[in-house]
């Protein structure tokens, strides 16, 4: 990687309950140069038939990423900062293994380009000490990029959690989800 100014004190905090489904993050995401002007963030209704609840999903940058493990082409790599990068374009064979194995449902397959793309935490910006595009525009702060001290001050009744359980699998991530005070893990069943 070229010389970077990645700030390891900064972290990404997501609070899905704050998502109002405005799609501002999608528009901002498409401005990220590492995505080639494609929006990588997901905003969707959770269960439209019974609720207007929306959710927002960025790549959680797992400590042991399932997407990279199941990639038959070794196209996904995690850098020294823990950022899991989008598929290496010469290598990606468009098999969709990563799309289907990611427990958070993050990677996107660009069908015609036969390429997987995903959020890489706006690496062009974060590697230069700036905030990811989505976090800079989110009006409800469902997406927040800052220090642990800042988030503790802003959300005194919440705890950032980066441990998840999907079935029997525990997953630790670089990105945090804001949970009720004292919570240790988000169990998804």
């Amino acid at each position: 990687m070229p010389e970077t100014n990645y700030n390891m004190d900064m972290a990404f905090f997501v609070d899905m309950q704050r998502c109002i489904g405005c799609h501002a993050c999608e528009m901002a995401c498409a401005e990220c140069e590492t995505n080639g002007q494609e929006s990588m963030i997901h905003v969707n209704y959770v269960d439209r038939a019974v609720s207007v609840q929306t959710t927002v999903q960025v790549c959680m940058h797992c400590e042991n990423p399932a997407c990279a493990n199941v990639c038959p082409a070794d196209a996904i790599h995690q850098d020294d900062f823990g950022v899991v990068h989008s598929a290496n374009t010469p290598r990606c064979i468009g098999c969709s293994n990563c799309v289907l194995a990611c427990p958070f449902g993050v990677p996107k397959k660009m069908e015609e380009a036969e390429l997987m793309m995903k959020c890489n935490m706006c690496y062009d910006r974060t590697s230069a000490g700036k905030k990811p595009m989505c976090a800079t525009v989110c009006p409800s702060q469902a997406l927040y990029y800052g220090t642990h001290e800042e988030i503790a001050r802003m959300r005194p009744n919440s705890t950032p959690v980066n441990s998840f359980k999907f079935g029997n699998q525990e997953v630790k991530t670089k990105v945090y989800v804001m949970m009720p005070k004292g919570a240790k893990q988000l169990i998804v069943d």
């Binding site: 899905m16 309950q17 997901h42 969707n44 959770v46 269960d47 609840q53 959710t55 999903q57 799309v99 289907l100 990611c102 427990p103 958070f104 449902g105 993050v106 990677p107 998840f164 989800v177 949970m179 009720p180 919570a183 988000l186 169990i187 998804v188 069943d189």
Partner: peptide, 15 residues
Amino acid sequence: PEGKRSALAAAHFRV
């Protein structure tokens, strides 16, 4: 993938 995102959001909502 959409089902997984919804499952995560639903679990978060529940907690």
